[in-house]
Design a protein around this nucleic acid. Structure first.
Lengths: 142, 142
DNA sequence: TTTGTTAGTTAGACCTAACTAACTATATTT
DNA sequence: AAATATAGTTAGTTAGGTCTAACTAACAAA
């Protein structure tokens, strides 16, 4: 049984990876490197971080981050604001363009949802979501 | 219903991505760049390709491939052999070290299998695999 | 056998992205 | 008020990875 599970998961993983890949092509992020994409995702997650927070989260030195951020500003994905509380610190925000990277995952999930809706009956869809959630719940519990 | 599916898939995608990430840390591939990793994966998939095949598959020019291959040889991941049939062409093989990159996905799938086995009953596991396969089947049909 | 083609390499340019060291400007502490 | 600490930048280095152009070696065909 375990082998059957592993095999199905292997194929399903690949399916999801492919979906994410296709989604990337659909988005307006073609001219971004994978590094730049991961910066944008992290900025999104951290919610307007400053340089110190961002570099800590990425595990990189601040000068490295400065350079990449500069490029992303040039590309119109983000902008900086100076903090009122402490004028040394600047916060990094996503522009509307930058926020579009969030679409990437969304496209992929849409694609997967299409696939699931077209291959499973409503009852099966219910079952499937239920089972997924059970697995997810036990993951979060760990 | 569609929203429920999308949400579950979003979380499940993230789970799989995390599992792949953890697996990478467990493998002996820490000193490889993501480019180098993807070269190794492609070499593995193509089964001892020559430079022309590899560069075509990667969508890169041959001189670019030459440089990266050289680095991977230095790192002991691959080796070259000259073809007997046509002494101009050289085939690229994974060494035992290079083959270890295949473990990467295997680790991730093991992790997922653990999770599934621990969170679902045997009946549910059967159901889950069945549903996954149904979705996968319809994907391949496209 | 000469001519052209194919496989891969070498050289050189360019870009991204990481680093360290040294800097400026602002806050904090004493 | 002076010394110290913190936030971020600037300058310079290094390494990886891509490209084009020009090359060598081996094969194919005229």
């Amino acid at each position: 049984m375990r082998d059957k599970i592993k095999l199905s998961i292997a194929h399903f993983s690949r399916l999801i990876t492919n979906a994410e890949g296709k989604a990337k092509d659909l988005c307006d992020v073609k001219d971004l490197t994978s590094t730049q994409l991961s910066y944008l995702e992290t900025i999104n997650e951290l919610d307007n971080p400053n340089f110190t927070e961002l570099s800590t989260e990425l595990g990189l030195k601040k000068p490295s981050v400065t350079v990449v951020i500069e490029r992303l500003i040039t590309k119109g994905c983000i902008y900086k604001t100076q903090s009122d509380a402490d004028r040394r610190t600047t916060h990094i925000h996503l522009t509307e363009v930058g926020k579009q990277i969030n679409q990437r995952h969304d496209f992929a999930h849409d694609y997967m949802a299409d696939l699931i809706e077209s291959s499973l009956s409503s009852t099966e869809q219910e079952q499937f979501v239920l089972l997924l959630n059970k697995v997810l719940k036990s993951y979060k519990g760990k």
